[in-house]
Design a binder for these strands. Sequence first.
DNA 1: TGTACATCAGTGAACGCGCGTTCACTGATGTAC
DNA 2: TGTACATCAGTGAACGCGCGTTCACTGATGTAC
Lengths: 220, 220
Amino acid sequence: MANRAEQKARTRNALIDSWLGIIGSGVNFASISLREVAKAAGVVPTSFYRHFDDMDELGLAVVDELGLDLRRLTRGSFDASQSMDANIRRGVGVYQRYVVDNAESVEFVNQARTGGTPALRGAIDSELSYFSTRIAGALRALVPGLKPSERDTVAQLILAVLLENTTALLAVPTKSRALQGEFRQELEDKMRVIMLGAEQLGTVSSPTRKPRQTPQPSAL
Amino acid sequence: MANRAEQKARTRNALIDSWLGIIGSGVNFASISLREVAKAAGVVPTSFYRHFDDMDELGLAVVDELGLDLRRLTRGSFDASQSMDANIRRGVGVYQRYVVDNAESVEFVNQARTGGTPALRGAIDSELSYFSTRIAGALRALVPGLKPSERDTVAQLILAVLLENTTALLAVPTKSRALQGEFRQELEDKMRVIMLGAEQLGTVSSPTRKPRQTPQPSAL
DNA sequence: TGTACATCAGTGAACGCGCGTTCACTGATGTAC
DNA sequence: TGTACATCAGTGAACGCGCGTTCACTGATGTAC
């Protein structure tokens, strides 16, 4: 009945899901043991090796999955024909929904970004670089005045704020519409400050240079 | 000769330093064992308990030390009589020097912020809240037009960008003036975007409301 | 369709190891008189 | 200053435990003919 490859894939998923479940219960991903994961997956410890060389490989598999999601999500999350504010709301909404719906995987990546092995951190960095590039691409249409290097700066800034707020978001009760809404509001406000700065920067450095008319004696 | 309290403090410091040394060698703080730390400190495992109940308490001690540094550093890191750009350069400089000079402690806090026990994360959050409040306070003089809630938003934004760039800074070779300079430049640029946004926001929401004269059809 | 053989996901016993924690101890430092 | 006692930082043996990894195995699934 059960196709061999299918059964193998099922066990593999059980290992990954068990691992994520333990992470979701509040344990640091680095202190979870292979035996613990195997046991939770209803499989003997030795079986683990039929699927992964070690725990690091399991982590890398999860990063790969998230990478695929990222590519899917960034397609069509920006729309230059709409207002900046609409784009901010849309982007923040997509991000927030994804984090809430994939809390365990995101929790893992959030930990591994600072505490993972070099291989893990490298894999995560590479996905995030891709993401940053996508944001910079969206900025070309959204804030036409920006130079390429400025787009990179702003893209990294946006990414930094998203990532930095992930820990806080993971702590917001999923069920509380009020608290989730409050988080969303605050994050949108932060993005608005950044985009105000980006637009200002774009106006200043644009080829069709317009004088800044609001009194700002300082930056740049 | 050796005063008993002094000797005890010396051992305590040896434990902390050994622990930080292991962290500095690239090991995740959560996977370092009590026995490992005791051994590196040249002391028997049982001795550890004369100083800390468990490893978590050791971590909390380090957080406390960093908290003191933070209070010292934030005194006089802003100067409303100077230009915004001067303040940015000063703030980024202080931050960068501190991270480079205290790489091991900062590495720990950077990991513990996402991967620590609830007690550890709580202690760190509390220090960072203090820091955020200090930044918001500095903004009162620096960008007078901002409403209190806007100052909070901008302060959190600044803090997020500092924290988010810490992992990257920890990976920049300490010795390379060129790479350190490049990092500083990029971080300053990010801060400038935020402050441009903040000043713009302050202009818009100020009681002496001036019309925005640069064409920005969107945000807020 | 039936048979004989190959594959390989999962098993279960066994290993040596480092772990956190307990306990009663030692002996130098500190204190009271 | 000298003596007798208290304190307590550090010791060393011992414990039971869960760890990652090895190995030869089993038996269901897959394949060749």
